[in-house]
């Protein structure tokens, strides 16, 4: 691979304990939120995670951001294990890696003015004066399509979509190498989505920043991602370069996922595949292939053996007994 690797997840796993009892908490099981996941993000490129609600995308993002500690496995940024650093290295990590979350409230403190929220990371982690920081805030507000006069407002004085733009400005403030984007545009209306998506691409081109993109809108993903990993119940079941994946879905789950995507055409005759059954619980995931109970192509072997990862075309991987 010619690209320089920025971030790598190796064998990354996160289990959450399921406890019982109020006083003496006894662990009665484990939520297998992320299970032996491997991927890498090259410098300046975008990897997207897509998949069913609860499949572990946000947990993966949190592991990268050090908001969760891995059960096993590791995350490295430019070769350095991010879960063992501290002191100045940790400060540097917090400017190198930032995030825009699904829920814009989570990154916006309600009691602070927008310009103080946005410049906080800069003032804490880098030696920057308030004046310099505020100048940068003004620039960023304009870059994300807001007015500089809005810098002195509080988050509740903005609409949902405007708050998402504030979150993006906050994420950009320290010139990061990687931004974790968890549903960055889904709360915005279409014309602003187009602006922000163009903006994300421009920023990537000019700053060479890498993105880990979590998004449910497959059109957004096609537009922004260089590579896509499809997750199901904590595991990556298919992974490929974006256009290769969209033109040639292999895993039955990926096929169902892509068939459920909606288009803006009211007369669209696209066939929607209904998956059988409920999403199985990640507490005791199904044996063998975790998708076997809902899969239209299920075979005997599927419930018995875990499918191994196969490379079907250069860089196109799938975990399925059909192949």
């Amino acid at each position: 691979m010619a690209d320089e690797i920025l971030l790598q997840a190796q064998d990354l796993t996160k289990y959450f304990p399921v406890t019982k009892g109020l006083v003496l908490q006894k662990t009665v099981g484990w939520v297998q939120a992320v299970d032996h996941v491997n991927f890498s993000i090259p410098k300046g490129k975008t990897l997207s995670l897509v998949g069913e609600s609860g499949c572990g995308k946000t947990t993966t993002a949190k592991l990268i951001l050090r908001l969760e500690q891995p059960t096993t496995g590791q995350v490295t940024l430019e070769g350095q294990d991010v879960h063992t650093i501290d002191g100045d290295e940790l400060k540097k990590y917090h400017t190198d890696v930032s995030a825009v979350f699904q829920d814009p409230w989570s990154s916006l403190s309600p009691r602070m003015r927008v310009r103080d929220i946005i410049s906080e990371a800069l003032i804490v982690n880098q030696k920057v004066t308030k004046v310099e920081a505020y100048e940068r805030v003004d620039l960023l507000l304009e870059q994300v399509g807001l007015r500089t006069q809005q810098a002195t407002l509080y988050p509740h004085e903005f609409s949902g979509g405007q708050r998402q733009r504030l979150a993006l400005a906050s994420a950009l403030v320290g010139n990061p190498k990687l931004i974790v984007l968890d549903e960055p545009v889904s709360a915005l209306d279409v014309s602003i989505q187009a602006q922000i998506m163009n903006l994300l691409k421009e920023l990537q081109d000019s700053y060479d920043v890498g993105y880990l993109l979590v998004a449910h809108n497959l059109a957004t993903v096609r537009y922004l991602a260089h590579e896509v990993a499809v997750m199901y119940l904590g595991e990556i079941v298919e992974q490929a370069e974006t256009n290769e994946l969209y033109d040639n879905t292999l895993h039955p789950y990926t096929k169902a996922l892509f068939s459920a995507a909606l288009t803006a055409n009211p007369d669209s005759q696209r066939e929607e595949i209904i998956l059988r059954g409920e999403v199985p619980s990640p507490i005791n995931p199904p044996s063998g292939c975790r998708f076997h109970q809902r899969c239209p192509y299920v075979m005997d072997v599927c419930s018995q053996e875990i499918p191994v990862r196969k490379e079907m075309a250069p860089g196109h991987f799938v975990n399925c007994h059909l192949y």
Binding site: S53, G160, H216, L257, A260
Partner: peptide, 13 residues
């Protein structure tokens, strides 16, 4: 009011 923005496509469907 935007009830499906946080959902992925199969769950949205």
């Amino acid at each position: 009011d935007e009830p499906t923005t946080a959902l992925d496509v199969t769950i949205q469907a």
